[in-house]
């Protein structure tokens, strides 16, 4: 569904991604595992063209999205929830959802705020509150809910569990699995193997800007993980 081929990305003069290649199939939950600075965020931002890549190929549903403006990529059905949450703090929860809204897609039942409130019950009671007054966990949920309002076929989640209390991590993991049941593919990044094991089908390990290992999550050994992800 999403195919990335030999992607090279620079920040200024520093090269961050080196010939990065990966693919996500429809209906999968795939993790991009790597330590901080390995290039996870840059990978996502390059896919969304928020940080334009220098060379390579990116296609989504067999169409090239390489160097397409971000908003067009989103309109193709690829949603993105960034790691630092970036909700609109002065907009209410409802308005945040409205900002993420896109026209419905064919063969796809559009998300409504009510459905999303079922998925994220904490948000329902705060729907008229400003985004900035939510707690960290609630903001994370709002970020995901807002992205879902664009009716994506695939959603990219950058470190969705970072900074969340253990209880909330569980809750969010369950929700992400539910998304899969509803036909949304998920591509997420994570540092912690244990957390990735909770929800993912398959994993890529990224190290110094390129993919070093790929396997189903069940067969991914701790050794492989240790080799690249521990400092």
């Amino acid at each position: 569904m999403l195919a990335v081929n030999s992607l090279n990305t620079f920040y200024g003069k520093a090269q961050i991604l080196f010939n990065l290649t990966l693919a996500v199939q429809a209906g999968e939950i795939v993790a991009l595992i790597g330590r901080n600075g390995a290039g996870k965020t840059t990978t996502f931002k390059s896919i969304m063209n928020l940080v334009p890549a220098e060379s390579g190929k990116i296609s989504f549903k067999h169409q090239s999205i390489y160097h397409l403006p971000s908003y067009k990529i989103c309109k193709q059905g690829l949603g993105y929830a960034p790691e630092d949450r970036r909700i609109f703090t002065k907009l209410t929860v409802m308005e945040n959802l409205e900002a993420g809204k896109q026209p419905p897609r064919r063969d796809f039942k559009p998300w409504t705020p009510e459905q999303l409130f079922e998925l994220f019950p904490n948000l329902a009671e705060k729907r008229h509150q400003d985004g900035g007054t939510l707690s960290g966990g609630e903001q994370q949920m709002l970020t995901i809910a807002r992205t879902l309002m664009g009716n994506p076929e695939m959603i990219i989640l950058d470190e969705p569990f970072e900074g969340l209390a253990p209880m909330i991590v569980k809750q969010l993991a369950r929700t992400i699995r539910k998304l899969k049941d509803q036909g949304v593919s998920v591509f997420l990044s994570e540092q912690n193997l244990n957390v990735a094991r909770l929800i993912c089908d398959r994993a890529y390990i990224i190290h110094r800007g390129s993919i070093r290992h790929e396997s189903p999550i069940d067969t991914l050994s701790s050794d492989q993980y240790e080799k690249y992800c521990s400092v």
Binding site: M48, L50, Y71, C74, F88, G100
Partner: peptide, 12 residues
Amino acid sequence: EDREMLAALGVN
């Protein structure tokens, strides 16, 4: 508040 985020949400 955040232009880049809005672009990632499909707004031109």
